[in-house]
């Protein structure tokens, strides 16, 4: 069972989940400050019907077409979310909840139908639900790597633009940045990250790889640049470790392991994080209280009664 670790294919798979995790960590930071963490989850679920339809049309598991199908399906989901909240009285979170469940339900229905027909079982489409990194072949890996590196480059090159777009969009527009253009690029990198991640991590859990690393990174820094770098690091390491663990067990799904590793980093960050981590907060408060006790002042009443 350890033999898989020495195959060159597996090394490529590890590389691809490393870069995927890094890309997801970076894009996750954008989603975090756009306050759209849940959006990535909705879009990931919305990608499923596209994967199956892509398979039905081509008749084989060609990653390029499956990714294309997933992207189209996710973009339709994004469009629905936009449209529902602008044209009806339904709010954004409700719209996301609806798109998420309806698209996913539709996808599962299609998947069941495909699995009943001959050849469907062998196609391994099931692995798109929870991810199966080890099942990727070299061409899958290259497609994924190219797209993930593309995403990283876009985030990196436009770093200053992303910052102002996320921090103060109306000011950004005032100095001539096209918000429409930025919205389009943002949606494109988000959807690309999601669709390239679904083979390795699965539609259900890919959003976690976008959300968790960025939140963990927030606990370590007050600089946007460092937050993105750390988030990329957390995402990349989670991707590699998760893939590694899942490969040891034969046929174990990859997604859950990646998410568990990411969650482990999150708990560490939450407790030990230098910026408002639980432990630091506690120690700071205790030393403040001690100081108050040494030099008694009227405000001691507040310290005891309040926070």
């Amino acid at each position: 069972m350890w033999s898989i670790l020495y195959s060159s294919n597996f090394h490529w798979v590890l590389t691809s989940t490393l870069i995927l995790g890094a890309a997801a960590g970076m894009v996750g930071c954008l989603a975090y400050w756009k306050k759209q963490s849940l959006m990535s989850d909705a879009l990931a679920h919305a990608a499923l019907p596209g994967v199956i339809i892509g398979f039905l049309l081509i008749g084989e598991k060609n990653i390029v077409y499956l990714i294309l199908g997933a992207a189209i399906s996710a973009l339709i989901g994004a469009f629905f979310i936009q449209w529902v909240q602008s044209a009806t009285r339904i709010s954004e979170d409700t719209a996301m909840g609806m798109v998420l469940s309806i698209f996913f339900g539709f996808g599962i229905m299609l998947l069941t139908i495909v699995n009943r027909t001959a050849g469907g079982n062998q196609s391994g489409l099931d692995s798109f639900i929870f991810g199966q990194a080890a099942s990727m072949v070299k061409s899958d890996v290259f497609t994924m790597l190219t797209l993930a590196i593309g995403v990283i480059v876009i985030v990196f090159v436009g770093f200053k633009e992303w910052k102002i777009y996320l921090f103060d969009p109306s000011f950004a527009k005032g100095i001539g940045l096209s918000l429409k253009g930025m919205n389009v690029v943002y949606t494109l990198v988000l959807v690309t990250t999601i669709v390239i991640g679904i083979q390795a991590v699965g539609v259900i859990l890919i959003a976690a790889l976008l959300i968790i690393p960025s939140v963990s990174a927030r606990y370590w820094t007050d600089s946007f640049r460092l937050m993105i770098s750390l988030s990329a690091l957390f995402g990349g390491v989670s991707g590699v470790l998760g893939t590694f663990i899942s490969a040891v067990g034969n046929g174990w799904p990859t997604g859950p392991f990646i998410v568990v590793v990411a969650a482990f980093f999150f708990v560490i960050s939450l407790v030990l994080g230098k910026e408002k981590g639980i432990l630091i907060n506690y120690l700071e408060r205790r030393s403040q209280r001690k100081q108050m006790l040494v030099t008694p002042s009227p405000s001691i009443i507040n310290v005891k009664g309040g926070k």
């Binding site: 400050w33 910052k163 921090f167 600089s223 946007f224």
Partner: peptide, 8 residues
């Protein structure tokens, strides 16, 4: 109009 918690 902006989120002052932004890391900058």
């Amino acid at each position: 109009s902006v989120d002052w918690d932004f890391p900058t």
